[in-house]
């Protein structure tokens, strides 16, 4: 029982990342009808927003303290981050909480990147075949990835979670299991809550605001909305930016779990596409549900007990599920009938 609970928890945080990326992919597909192979790159860009902020706040000044000496007889070097020098305690706070603070930095950046991408490139591809859309966004993903590689190098850059939440929670004790059986890092709990909040925000935006209502109307029947005198194109551009922000924030918060490197986007992209397909192309709740489900499935498949029966199942389970779903129920778990079924 406790092992099962642990696997579910372990799967959920990865699943949450899949769900967030897949949500953005579905939003873009539902509104613009574009298959965005560069969405993984947006996730990666978000992660590198956190890296950039981490680097900025950690710029250090070195002062020599002549009163103390090291065992080698040289004066002790005291390194203090510049922000701490400037802002005192608030600066120290910024250094400590650089990852959560990156969210504030990432939102405008990702929104800007998303809007530029849509206006500068994607808008010319609405009428082109899906193959062309896949190809051009694939090329864009390579370009973004290589720029990041040139800028930050090829090695993963670990980002630390704030000390306050660096430890692990012994969740099992709360639920009456033996201590030490179900241990879960605080940061992953935060990631789960954050994802839930973000997904909730997106759905609330679409469901309860007038703007979101118009967007949903545009998804259902673009022409009619246009005939009503609404500039639906502009709103779809904003939705693209929103999808970029969602992917970016997923990336920012994921950095303490997985040190970001330049090809993390590609790794997540392939899986997120599978998630979209399993959930149903164009279905937002489907994307979220399938993301969490596949994350948990993957985590179960990597249990030793399962691997002993079916060796290698952890490597292929997600793809296997996708193949089965596509053959048995091509519209996906929650897809609407008739959307992209052939």
């Amino acid at each position: 029982m406790d092992a099962i609970l642990l696997q579910i928890l372990n799967g959920l945080d990865k699943g949450a990342a899949y769900a967030l990326i897949a949500l953005g992919l579905t939003l873009i597909f539902g509104t613009l009808g574009v298959v965005n192979f560069a969405h993984g790159a947006l996730f990666m860009l978000g992660a590198f927003c956190a890296v950039t902020v981490g680097k900025l706040v950690n710029y250090q000044v070195v002062t020599l303290d002549p009163t103390r000496t090291t065992p080698w007889g040289t004066p002790v070097e005291i390194r203090t981050p510049i922000v701490q020098e400037w802002f005192g305690d608030f600066g120290a706070f910024m250094v400590e909480y650089s990852v959560p603070l990156s969210i504030l930095f990432a939102i405008p950046i990702m929104l800007l990147i998303g809007v530029i991408m849509e206006r500068g490139l994607i808008q010319f591809f609405y009428k082109r075949p899906h193959a062309d859309q896949i190809l051009v966004t694939f090329g864009l993903a390579i370009v973004i990835q290589e720029i990041i590689k040139a800028q930050f190098g090829a090695n993963p850059i670990p980002q630390a979670a704030p000390d306050l939440v660096a430890g692990s929670a012994d969740i099992g004790v709360l639920l009456g299991f033996d201590p030490g059986t179900v241990v879960y890092p605080y940061w992953r709990i935060i990631y789960l809550l954050f994802s839930a909040l973000l997904i909730g925000c997106v759905f609330a935006f679409l469901q309860f605001t007038t703007y979101g209502m118009v967007v949903r109307a545009g998804m259902a029947d673009r022409e009619t909305v246009g005939l009503l005198g609404i500039n639906i194109q502009q709103r779809f551009t904003v939705v693209f930016g929103l999808a970029a922000v969602v992917a970016g924030l997923a990336g920012v918060m994921y950095t303490p779990i997985l040190p970001p490197d330049y090809h993390m986007g590609m790794d997540f992209l392939v899986l997120s596409f599978v998630v979209v397909v399993v959930g149903g192309m164009g279905s937002l709740p489907g994307a979220v549900a399938a993301g969490l489900l596949l994350g948990v499935l993957q985590s179960f498949a990597s249990m030793n007990e399962v691997k002993n029966i079916l060796p290698g199942i952890d490597q292929i389970i997600i793809y296997l599920v996708a193949v089965v779903i596509l053959l048995v129920r091509p519209r996906g778990l929650m897809g609407r009938k008739g959307v992209m079924e052939s």
Partner: peptide
């Protein structure tokens, strides 16, 4: 059995499966 994007994603899924298997179990 599927066309369009689905075909692309299915072939991608199979290729990734082969790659992962070649690295691990096989």
């Amino acid at each position: 059995r599927r066309a369009g994007i689905y075909f692309s994603i299915l072939t991608l899924a199979f290729a990734q499966m082969s790659y992962n298997l070649a690295y691990s179990v096989l």
